[in-house]
Design a protein around this nucleic acid. Structure first.
Lengths: 366, 366
DNA sequence: TTGAAAGCGATACCAG
DNA sequence: CTGGTATCGCTTTCAA
């Protein structure tokens, strides 16, 4: 549907902000060039004119039109974040809030804005294409990649700067990413438990189509194998990272003929669900059952009992957002730098309120 | 700091998307005008050319440059949301996530994008000014207004379309808003408790500099007065909407010489804190102490016990976002319509897991 | 039904 | 240090 005719006319009438560069320079009896240079801090303008221009700009309340700047410079000074609101992962998506907040602050500090696109389900690739092809944004951030994420090759072919928070194990071409060592973190957590004598350690994981969850699982398996323990599928659950899911998973695990004596949870929310299921059974955490939780994730109930954990998680996610933002901006401004691929080691959050106590696991056969 | 010289050159070299309108029309042996018209659905192009153009556009993977469109039309097709990350209200801000999600979906459906600005503390007015004056956005949404919110007069003077989620009681000029009847909701909640015979009803409220909290308080006071009960400042607490705050407030209230027999909580998170404090004291909710909670707010722990409440709150916030977005878009596209000022009645969420049971309040003197 | 040309409001090159 | 002018890519008017 084409817009009504004369729309522009109406608009300009309604807008009424007629103080533009041309008008300002006319009043100053200077060329647009000089005024522009003065305002943008170019060295070649004399201090006196610069001051004159600055004063006039303030007086006439002039501020440059971003739309025109954007066209003239070819840069939109905006970064795209795309968030898919799929029905199934409704809750998980809230993870993005802190990430976005951390990134957004960085953008602001550098004169960038953030273009946020909420798309239903899997219109994601189209959204990325639209944003970058049409020049709406100068770069994009990709969150929570799947193992083989189509977005990455899509962005590579679009030739737009981007940074992935996480990695996609099955994408071979190089790209910029930032990731926590998921595998090692879960390996450490699992080993911690096997070292304590646990022989049936359960994993309550996120969806394993997502890369980070797959890596966590491989860390879990590696630890078990090193400890000479079998990798038992009945001890592994995966699903959305929500408290009810953790609860359901733990209940099912506790109902097994040979229930686990310890749990590794792949996020704080999952761990909370596990905790609830365990306590519901009258088992004492840290005594009858152990629970270790790793999370580069976040949850939103500032329940005082777990408050330190939540706070730590939240600020960690925010920090990750800030880091990705910084990296992306530097890629945009210095495209020839080597591709950043940053892997860092995680802090392990042990237990919820307390660390797992050493114990003889129930039903263990030493 | 001025950009390095030749920046544009480097950019255009790096961009490599040389399929623009001019090029496309050259290949089609048509004028830019015709091609543009064909693509934008103007009626005057013949069906045959329209098809030819559409095919070529698809074939050459053409998509119009949003930056140029924006400059030519004077509309950026983008809505601004500004979120202030003050240090004190760190947690409260997460409320915005669902609101933003709800709004974002609507924008997408109408070809708009969302420009999200995260600003530290109180750089807010400047941010609004920058966004609108420079033409970065076509309209903005204001959330969580204070009683006398400077943003509103600022936006009025900028003459940019905006919609406020909530109202500012002390702003006299008319503007578009969407609000829930906070006063009546809390009045109803309080009356519910006094009708049950409670004579010491506490209010655990949000920060009362915010308009909605002030209104809720007035509803609380009105209900007490109608019931012939004194308005006792010692029974009223206000602060950030976080669980720890609710907990602290409830503890302090329970420590009073004359503790309340019932609580009205102004959000689910506050109510959860109250609940924890109550249970910690060995009191039974719904028997020893009653708790009623109203919330147009949201919280993020999907704890199964309260799950329906949380789910309801979340979708309500998302719906509010969508409603504000719809209103704003219609204001932008039809500026001459009467100002929408929509007040709706809230559903009351009673109790957390169970409704308050009728009881003889502890220590009551009938 | 089509096309030529004038904006939109800035930036940046090349002269002076 | 300052100014004229082409340019960015599209929309829209006006003429054919």
């Amino acid at each position: 549907m084409p817009p009504p005719r004369h729309a522009a006319l109406i608009l300009h009438w309604g807008q009424g902000n007629d103080m533009n560069l041309k008008e300002l320079s006319r009043r100053l009896q200077l060329s647009q060039t000089t005024v522009s240079r003065a305002l943008n801090g170019y060295p070649e303008v004399s201090d006196s004119t610069r001051k004159r221009v600055a004063d006039a700009a303030a007086k006439f309340n002039y501020s440059p039109n971003a739309r025109a700047q954007t066209l003239a410079t070819g840069k939109s000074k905006s970064i795209g974040h795309i968030i898919a609101m799929s029905n199934q992962t409704e809750l998980t998506n809230m993870v993005f809030a802190d990430f976005v907040a951390g990134a957004g602050l960085i953008y602001g500090e550098h004169g960038y804005t953030m273009t946020l696109k909420i798309v239903p389900d899997r219109e994601e690739p189209a959204a990325y294409r639209a944003l970058s092809e049409r020049g709406t944004v100068d770069g994009v951030i990709v969150q929570a990649p799947a193992c083989n994420d189509p977005r990455i090759s899509c962005l590579l072919s679009l030739d737009i700067p981007f940074v992935v928070h996480g990695r996609a194990s099955d994408v071979s071409a190089p790209y910029a990413w930032l990731d926590v060592n998921n595998k090692r973190a879960i390996d450490t957590a699992t080993t911690h438990l096997t070292d304590l004598g646990h022989r049936r350690v359960a994993l309550v994981n996120g969806r394993e189509t997502l890369d980070f969850a797959a890596r966590r699982r491989s860390g879990y398996e590696a630890a078990l194998q090193r400890a000479g323990l079998p990798v038992d599928p009945r001890l592994m659950r995966s699903g959305d990272m929500s408290e009810p899911n953790g609860y359901d998973a733990a209940r099912a695990l506790l109902d097994e003929k040979q229930p686990p004596s310890a749990f590794v949870a792949s996020s704080v929310v999952l761990a909370l669900g596990v905790k609830r299921a365990v306590e519901e059974r009258g088992l004492r955490l840290g005594q009858d059952v152990s629970l270790v939780c790793f999370d580069d994730d976040i949850s939103y109930l500032p329940n005082a009992g777990e408050k330190p954990v939540f706070t730590a998680m939240r600020s960690s996610v925010r920090a990750a957002g800030a880091r990705c933002a910084t990296l992306l901006l530097s890629r945009i401004n210095a495209p020839d730098q080597p591709l950043p691929q940053e892997l860092w080691e995680a802090e392990l959050v042990q237990g919820l309120s307390s660390g797992p106590a050493p114990e003889i696991p129930a039903g263990a056969t030493p």
